[in-house]
Simulated assay, not measured.
Amino acid sequence: MEVDLRYDAKIKGLAIKNGPEHVDPQLQLELEQLNTICTELIGITDAVPSPPTPENFNKDMSRMISKLYEGGVQAFKNGKIQDSEKQFTIAIEVINRRNKFEAFQGTLQELGILLMARADTYLAGKKYVKAFNDADLLIGLMMCTPDNFLRRGVANYFLENYEDARADFQRGLAFDPNNEKLLAELNNVLDKILDENGDYL
């Protein structure tokens, strides 16, 4: 399939012109990725991007992200769940706007802390699908953290995915066998499974 790619001044990148109505999603994704990396390269003033190091990590953005995180935590403590959720979401968006050539280790650390906080906020606000999505992403990023399995397990429990919740709590306990919260939640879900199966009165 042939497509007509041209530079579009409005988006400052390549776009498909006079193409078929339905463009292959993979082609569209690759085009967006190409435009993103080109934008990042154009924004660099050096001839070659410098290697990512802690020294060239944008400290101003880090301070902004830290303030948003602290504001979200304070809002959560004051019972303002929606304000807290908004602060964490904005902070995650700021992380996404970081230069793609910055050190990923710092970005990953910031993202992990914010996703944990936002997942807890979603659970408190009874937004269980969103909490599940954040916890699922956290498990992909930080597999050995038992609390992330707790978060996903609780979301699964309230979504009535009891077997998945049981599996999450058991996986979390594999990393921390004496975790009281995981043990308590596992007992709750086991009781629920027995009740659902009619084996428990």
Rank of each mutant, 00 (worst) to 15 (best):
K10T: 15
F104A: 11
D199K: 09
P25Q: 04
K59M: 13
L114T: 11
E40S: 12
D195R: 05
F149W: 03
L190N: 15
E163S: 09
P146E: 01
N18K: 15
L194R: 10
G43H: 06
G125H: 12
V48A: 03
T39Y: 00
K12H: 01
E110R: 02
D4I: 03
E163G: 04
A75F: 15
Y69F: 08
R97Y: 06
A184F: 02
A174V: 07
A103R: 14
I11V: 09
A9H: 04
V73Q: 00
L183D: 07
G125M: 03
F101M: 10
E55T: 12
E180Y: 06
D120G: 08
N18T: 13
M142T: 12
F149H: 08
E196D: 02
E185I: 01
P51V: 09
K126Y: 07
P54K: 02
I81A: 00
C144A: 11
C144D: 14
V73F: 01
D191G: 14
P52V: 13
D46P: 12
K67S: 02
F88V: 01
V73H: 00
D195A: 06
E160G: 01
L68C: 08
I44Q: 07
N18V: 14
Q28T: 14
I11R: 08
E2Q: 10
M143D: 12
R118Q: 02
N133R: 04
H22L: 04
N156I: 10
G19D: 07
L137K: 13
K59V: 11
I42T: 11
L186K: 08
A47H: 10
L150I: 03
L201C: 13
F175K: 01
Y7T: 01
G79W: 15
I90T: 13
M1V: 10
S66N: 15
E70K: 00
N18F: 13
G71M: 00
E30A: 10
E2M: 15
Q74E: 11
S50P: 14
P177V: 05
E55H: 08
N58I: 07
G140R: 03
Q33V: 10
D164I: 14
E160S: 07
F175E: 04
A174F: 11
L173M: 00
I42Q: 03
A174G: 03
F132Y: 13
I95E: 15
Q105I: 10
T145I: 06
L29S: 07
